[in-house]
Write a protein that binds this DNA or RNA. Structure first.
Length: 581
DNA sequence: GCCGTTTTCGGCCCGACTGTTTTCAGTCG
C-alpha cells in the first residue's frame, strides 16, 4: 500500500484535541482545533512537504493554523505524536473519533459514558447498549440507547458516506415522489449533493408548502424508509433502506432563497455570509436576511447574494475557498456548463472490455447530443481486457472509417487509444502506430506502488512522448477503495504545462480523477482538461455529468476543457501539443 | 487558538429537534 502524507493523521489528532477540550467545556478553543483539522484534511499538499520547504512559516500559511497549532504539527512531524493529545487521552482514554462518529453522540456524552460505564470504544458501547445499561443513566433513556445501536449499525455497514452518483439517484427518486404532491409548491435538493461533493453523508431536501404536515406525513411513510429519526412540523429525518439519511425541511415561500442557501452550505461558506451580513448591520438565518425586524432579502438566492453585495455564487463553488472575495469584486469564473460538453474523449467498446460496439456507442452519444467521441480501447499489455496490438488497432481504425460513413457525419468518431504506460514510462504501442491516431490517452494500470519519484518520472516520461495527448485518470485512485498512487502532483502539472499535455477529469463515478483541488491547480497553471465518461456501456455516457460537476468544483471554465470546444479546435490544440514535444 | 475594511484585543453563527427534562442540554447542520 502506498504511504500517504501525514495530513489525515494530523487532522484526526487535532480534531480529537478539539473534542477533548469540548469535553472539558473549554470555550472557543475546540472550534479552532476542529476548524484547523478540517482545513488540513482537505489540503492537497502534504504538511511534511510544506514543513520541509518553508518550516513553521509555511505551516502557518495553512488556513486556520496559527502559531499554536503550527507548533503542534511540527511536534508531530518530529516525534510522531502530540504531547497534549497524549495527556488528554490519558485523562479520558477512549477512542474518541470512533465514538463521536456515532450519530447523536458528542464529546459530553462520550465523557459520561466513560466515567459512569467505562465505555472506551465502539465494541464497549454496543455491549452496554445491548445490555440495557445506557438507558439507566440520568439524561439517557431507551430511545437514546436505540439510536446509539442504530448509529453503530450504520457505521459498520457504510463507513458513513456514499458516492455522489448513488446519492444523486436516491435523491432524484424522492424528489419525483414529493413533486407529485399538489401540496408541494417548490422543491430543491440542497446540501453537499447540490454542491456535488464526490461523497455524500446525507440527502437534504427543501420544500415550500402551505401544508407542511401533509408533506411530512407523506415523506416519513415512503416505502423505502426503514426508520423515522425525527418528525417535526418543519423538519423530519429518515433513514432509507440503502442506509442513507434524508432530511426534509419545509419553509415558507418568502424564505425559500435563504433556506436553500442555508441548507446548501457549505457550513463555512454560510458562516462567512453571516459574518458579512453582520458587518453590514444585518442578520442572516434560514428565514431571510434581516435589518432589524424587516426582511430585506431571502425569497431567492439571487436576491440574497445581491443584498449582501455579492455576485451569485454557483453551488459547486461554495466551499469558502476564496469565492466570496471574488464575488465581492464580481470576478467569479464563469464555470463550464453541463450542456457545454461537445464530445467525449474516452470510450471503450467490445473490441476490449467495453460491452457495446463502436456503432452502438456512437449512436448512444448522438442521442445524448454529443458531436464527437473518441474510441479509446485498451492496449496489448492489458491482457485481461484483450488489449489491442498494432495489427488489431489498424483493423479497428478501418472499422471506424466504415461506421463514420454509415452514420453520415451526424457524429464524428475519432480514432484513439487508451495506451498503457509501462513501468519505465514508455508506451505500450510503437510511436508509428500512435502517430496515426487522432486522440491518444495514456494511463497507468500497473506498478501502483512505485516510489513517489519513480511514479512521477514514469508519468513525465509518458507525457514527453510526442503522441501522448491526454493522461487518463491521472492519479489512479478509486474512491473509498484504493488510494491514489504516490505522485508529485505539482511536478506533474508543471510537466503537463511544458509538454502541452491535457489532464483528464475521469467522470466514472468511483474515480472522479482528477480531484477538485487538483483541477483548480490545473486551471491556475493553464493546463487544459478533458472531461470524459470512461464509458464501457452506452448508459455510462450519463457519467459525463459527474465529471462536469467535478470540473466546476475545480473552478474550470469552458476555455479550460478541450472537449467543450468544437472538434476542429480541439484537434488542432492536440496537434500543437504534439508539435511542441 | 485564530483572526483583522470596526480590531494585535476581544470577539468567535444560529436555530431546530430530541429526549428526558419541568426549563434544558446535547447534537446537528
Amino acid at each position: 500500500m502506498p504511504k500517504e502524507n501525514p495530513n489525515r493523521e494530523i487532522a484526526q489528532l487535532l480534531g480529537e484535541i478539539g473534542e477533548y477540550l469540548e469535553m472539558q467545556r473549554v470555550p472557543f478553543k475546540p472550534r479552532a482545533y476542529i476548524k484547523a483539522a478540517e482545513e488540513i484534511a482537505s489540503l492537497a499538499e502534504g504538511l511534511d512537504r510544506i514543513y520541509e520547504k518553508e518550516g513553521l512559516k509555511g505551516l502557518r500559511n495553512v488556513p486556520a493554523v496559527g502559531m499554536g497549532i503550527a507548533q503542534k504539527i511540527e511536534e508531530f512531524l518530529k516525534t510522531g505524536r502530540i504531547r497534549e493529545h497524549v495527556e488528554l487521552k490519558k485523562r479520558t482514554p477512549v477512542n474518541l473519533a470512533a465514538l463521536t462518529a456515532v450519530e447523536g453522540l458528542g464529546p459530553q456524552n462520550v465523557k459520561r459514558l466513560y466515567e459512569e460505564l467505562g465505555i472506551r470504544d465502539l465494541a464497549g458501547l454496543e455491549k452496554a447498549a445491548r445490555a440495557g445499561r445506557i438507558r439507566k443513566l440520568a439524561g439517557f433513556g431507551p430511545r437514546s440507547e436505540e439510536r446509539i445501536l442504530a448509529g453503530i449499525e450504520f457505521l459498520k455497514r457504510s463507513g458513513g458516506r456514499r458516492l455522489l452518483s448513488f446519492a444523486l439517484g436516491e435523491a432524484r427518486g424522492i424528489e419525483e415522489h414529493l413533486r407529485s404532491m399538489p401540496e408541494v409548491s417548490r422543491l430543491a435538493v440542497a446540501g453537499s449533493l447540490r454542491r456535488r461533493r464526490e461523497t455524500i453523508g446525507d440527502i437534504d431536501i427543501l420544500v415550500v408548502s402551505r401544508h407542511p404536515r401533509a408533506v411530512m406525513e407523506n415523506f416519513v411513510s415512503m416505502s423505502k424508509v426503514v426508520r423515522v429519526q425525527a418528525h417535526g412540523r418543519t423538519k423530519s429525518s429518515v433513514k432509507l433502506a440503502s442506509g442513507l439519511d434524508v432530511d426534509l425541511r419545509v419553509v415558507p415561500e418568502t424564505s425559500y432563497g435563504s433556506a436553500l442557501n442555508y441548507f446548501t452550505g457549505s457550513k463555512d461558506h454560510n458562516v462567512s455570509l453571516r459574518e458579512l451580513a453582520m458587518s453590514k448591520g444585518m442578520k442572516l438565518n434560514e428565514y431571510g436576511l434581516f435589518r432589524g425586524r424587516r426582511q430585506v432579502a431571502g425569497r431567492t438566492e439571487e436576491d440574497l447574494y445581491r443584498a449582501l453585495g455579492l455576485a451569485y455564487v454557483e453551488p459547486e463553488m461554495r466551499e469558502n475557498a476564496g469565492e466570496i472575495e471574488l464575488a465581492k469584486k464580481d470576478k467569479l469564473p464563469s464555470l463550464v456548463g453541463y450542456k457545454d460538453i461537445e464530445g467525449d474523449l474516452q470510450i471503450q467498446t467490445d473490441w476490449t472490455d467495453g460491452q457495446a460496439s463502436i456503432e452502438a456507442m456512437a449512436k448512444a452519444a448522438m442521442a445524448k447530443g454529443l458531436k464527437y467521441i473518441a474510441i479509446t480501447d485498451h492496449t496489448q499489455r492489458l491482457k485481461m481486457t484483450r488489449g489491442l496490438d498494432e495489427k488489431r488497432l489498424l483493423k479497428q481504425m478501418a472499422e471506424i472509417d466504415r461506421v463514420n460513413r454509415r452514420l453520415g457525419g451526424k457524429i464524428r468518431i475519432l480514432k484513439g487509444s487508451e495506451c498503457d504506460i509501462l513501468k519505465d514510462g514508455s508506451l505500450d504501442l510503437p510511436d508509428k502506430a500512435l502517430g496515426k491516431l487522432e486522440v491518444v490517452g495514456v494511463s497507468v494500470h500497473s506498478y501502483f506502488n512505485l516510489s513517489r519519484e519513480e511514479q512521477t518520472e514514469r508519468l513525465l516520461r509518458a507525457m514527453r512522448n510526442p503522441n501522448a495527448d491526454i493522461v487518463f485518470h491521472p492519479t489512479g485512485r478509486v474512491i473509498e477503495r484504493r488510494p491514489a498512487y504516490e505522485l508529485d502532483m505539482a511536478k506533474l502539472i508543471r510537466g503537463a504545462r511544458e509538454t502541452g499535455t491535457v489532464l483528464e477529469v475521469d467522470a466514472y463515478p468511483d474515480r472522479l480523477d482528477l480531484k477538485d483541488e487538483h483541477i483548480r491547480e490545473c486551471v491556475r497553471a493553464g493546463v487544459k482538461l478533458a472531461v470524459d465518461s470512461d464509458a464501457h456501456h452506452p448508459a455510462h455516457l450519463d457519467y459525463l455529468e459527474y465529471g462536469v460537476s467535478q470540473a466546476r468544483r475545480g473552478w474550470a471554465e469552458r476555455k479550460d476543457v478541450i472537449n467543450a470546444w468544437p472538434v476542429e479546435k480541439m484537434l488542432s490544440f492536440l496537434k500543437n501539443g504534439r508539435a511542441r514535444r
